[in-house]
Design a protein around this nucleic acid. Structure first.
Lengths: 252, 252
DNA sequence: CTTGACCTTGACGTAACGTCAAGTTCTACC
DNA sequence: GGTAGAACTTGACGTTACGTCAAGGTCAAG
């Protein structure tokens, strides 16, 4: 129950350097310092060390850990605050990934990747399994036939239309326009018209529940970062949703 | 076409400090340095600066940007390498988030958070809009009634069962077990049995397409990071999918 | 007494700048 | 021409959580 710095480091799965660092910070002082300056630790120190390391693995900063250990901060509350930051970071990463992917496909002239990923390009941002899950395997197959039937030029045109919509939505969202203003509503109209070009969806079926479909899609754009990335991230997705909602309520 | 350091900084949306930094690194030298030491830039420098800032927004490091700009590295290749790192980071974050959430619910004894977030805890990892989209508003409402009908203790039990499944899947995936081995198949069986407890899903309906449903869910776990987070990240999700697929093919 | 193993403090490096600090130069106005 | 204020310069510290030498003291074994 009296360990040297190396011993306790190995016990806890860390390094002696880290222990000296925590000592410097006042986060974990040695139980006893011998006359020769050597640090010694007991099992209470080990327990404290293990709590520190656990919280660190969760991504908390050392100052936050110190607060929790001193009892001056509630552990659950600290973790929830931390969770918020983690989610933000995750969103940032998702947006960055989408941008990098877009840049790469742009760089490659949109050639090779398109053939493979275009079906992922839009509501086709969706994976096959999800499409089947949502609308059934039959609808997926119908969409696939339609897509291949477009031919090279048709696919190119469709993709251009898709990209233009994405660009215009992003620009509109960033301009701070009102979602229920004239410009945004014009975009929403274009969006719905464009949606009716996708067979197998309610929007394409005469008598289909277009309104419910559009409302649901808007919510999904916000809920799923893969969708939102096409519209300039979270804020963009919320803008699109609000614009679509306003349009659907008024026109559909 | 001859800007001072402040002017070009504003034009490009950055700061003069950053420009001096890039000068120090040799990343972007001023076009001309006057006798008084003042830095001056022309439009070619502006173009280069804008490329730098664009790549930086994508998350590339300055050394990598330098390589791309010097032509000693292929831009697309650099971005794809970067993309790999971004995806790794995202996975790490997802795992950390899952751990933090698990820790919080453990801390709170599964009390308060459950009421609000439990409906997101499961295939209820899904947002309301998505559930409605996939199974219809009626199914959502049925599920909601069922959930509230469970009462406090029932909800606690359900949550414990869910958490146990998540833990066991994660552990199994990390142990390097074979997805079609006995242990994984036992887990898959438990998973399917657990699914049948959720009303409104095909699995709960006698005569429903359980096999297709299970296969689709597996794919979705892989495709959507929000699902994968419950099973130890991307690798865990793939393990779950493979195990479920093997089980479905054999037993359903 | 020597040789390692282990310990100490001190200090630099990490990514990309933000933020003073101290000193020089330019511009405008009196 | 003098002066205030704006803009510019180089230099250097701070940021996160330690890793990694460097130089030197201590301890157990042979």
């Amino acid at each position: 129950m009296d360990w040297s710095i190396q011993e306790i480091a190995k016990l806890a799965g860390t390094t002696s350097r880290t222990l000296r660092h925590y000592d410097d910070l006042g986060l974990l002082a040695p139980t006893r310092v011998a006359g020769n300056g050597y640090r010694h630790y007991d099992e209470r120190a080990l327990v404290r060390l293990q709590r520190i390391l656990l919280l660190r693995e969760l991504g908390l900063g050392l100052p936050a850990i110190a607060e929790v250990l001193e009892g001056s901060a509630d552990e659950a509350r600290a973790l929830e605050a931390h969770l918020g930051w983690l989610r933000q970071e995750q969103g940032r990463l998702a947006r960055q990934i989408a941008s990098v992917e877009k840049t790469i496909t742009a760089l490659e002239g949109g050639e090779r990747l398109m053939a493979d990923e275009m079906f992922d390009g839009f509501d086709h941002t969706v994976h096959r399994a999800e499409v089947e899950q949502r609308w059934g395997a039959e609808a997926y197959a119908a969409g696939d036939r339609w897509w291949r039937g477009l031919g090279e030029t048709g696919q190119r045109e469709w993709k251009a239309r898709t990209a233009a919509l994405s660009r215009d939505w992003t620009a509109a969202a960033e301009s701070g326009l009102a979602p229920d203003g004239a410009e945004a509503q014009a975009l929403a109209k274009r969006h719905v018209e464009w949606l009716t070009g996708v067979p197998g969806t309610p929007a394409a079926v005469p008598g289909g529940d277009v309104k419910g479909y559009v409302l649901g899609l808007g919510e999904m754009y916000v809920a799923d970062p893969r969708f939102g990335a096409n519209y300039g991230g979270q804020a963009g997705a919320e803008f699109v949703r609000d614009a679509l909602r306003a349009y659907a309520e008024r026109e559909l």
